[in-house]
Amino acid sequence: MPVRTNPTARQLRLGAELRRLRERAGLTSTEAARLLGMKQAQVSNMETGRLGVSAERVRALACQYECPDKALVDAIAGMTGERKRGWWEEYRDILPARLLDLAELEHHGYELRTAHTSGMPGLLQTTEHAREVFRQVVPELTPPEVEHRTSFRIKRQAVLFRRDTVPYRAVIHEAALHMRFGGREIARQQLKHLLKLGEHPNVSILVIPFDAGGYPGAGQPIYYVHGPVPQLDTVQLDQSHGIALLDADAQLDKYRTVLDRLTALSLIEVESRALIHSIIQTL
């Protein structure tokens, strides 16, 4: 099997989980290679996502590493199965690879949670709102780049409506609801779009009102993607230099706690819808 030059985030994560299994067994890559009858370079390439691995090989590795967590082993083995190219691959060499990694991550997610305090979650944006957001990017994007990013964002939203529905839970601060990207009419349509999306049984939209006071997280957008087991969860953060994907246990615990606290500060769904409706009336 040829060595990959540009593994995706999912392939990197699979490799990282294999490395964690080995390290929990107290083995170096050289010791693992000797135990498995492989070359050390093969072990290293598997653990960096550069070499493909089958579900059978994952199970063999887990057996040799004496991993007792069958659910985790099954979940890692499940990461090896998909061979077809996802829709996001049509944007390869057009958009940054991290955006494609995000779409792949969502595609395989079991539950999606997000919190925004000053902007609208990407999966909830209208086309017009998304386009205005990308027009504000620094450094400035060219018109074709704006359209590519806009169409990509809208295509990502299909994850909310596929047959095997994924629960999506968004916490939005009231401040974000008052933002007027593109002017009053685009803002009005965006809020109406929120109300419409909130009618879907798998979509939950909660609002933190101004009078809730302070909140954790320093206002940073948080996107939490649940995997088949908690160890395979991922946090995505938007940072000034681009997208960051986090999966260390301490990081997952931190952002689960932050999201839980933000949810506790929010209005219930009925009250959130009423607040969104009242803001629409002011536009």
Rank of each mutant, 00 (worst) to 15 (best):
P96E: 13
E140W: 08
P216N: 10
W87D: 10
E140T: 08
H129P: 00
F181A: 15
E82K: 11
Q136S: 11
E128G: 01
D93R: 04
A97F: 14
V203Q: 02
R188K: 11
Q125P: 11
R153N: 15
V146M: 05
E128F: 01
P201R: 10
H107E: 15
F210I: 07
P96F: 13
E185T: 14
T150G: 14
L160A: 14
E90K: 13
L124F: 11
T165L: 09
A187F: 13
K84H: 10
A103Q: 04
E128I: 00
A176Q: 04
R135N: 06
D93H: 10
V146E: 05
P121C: 10
L99P: 01
M79N: 02
V203R: 00
R184S: 14
D211Y: 13
I186Q: 12
E147I: 04
L95V: 09
L160H: 12
R163M: 08
I205N: 03
H200T: 06
G122R: 05
W88F: 07
A212C: 09
Q189N: 13
R184V: 14
G109N: 07
G183C: 11
V171P: 00
L95Q: 05
G217M: 01
R162W: 08
H200E: 15
M120K: 04
L160S: 11
D101N: 09
P121L: 06
E106M: 14
E132K: 08
G217E: 04
S151F: 14
L112Y: 15
E111K: 09
P143T: 02
I94V: 08
V137F: 10
V207W: 00
P144F: 05
H107C: 12
Q190A: 06
H107S: 15
L206V: 01
Y91Q: 05
L112R: 06
R169G: 01
L195A: 02
L195Q: 01
D211A: 13
G109F: 02
P216I: 06
Y215E: 03
T117S: 11
L177N: 01
I208Q: 01
T117R: 01
K192M: 07
G213V: 09
H107D: 15
V133L: 13
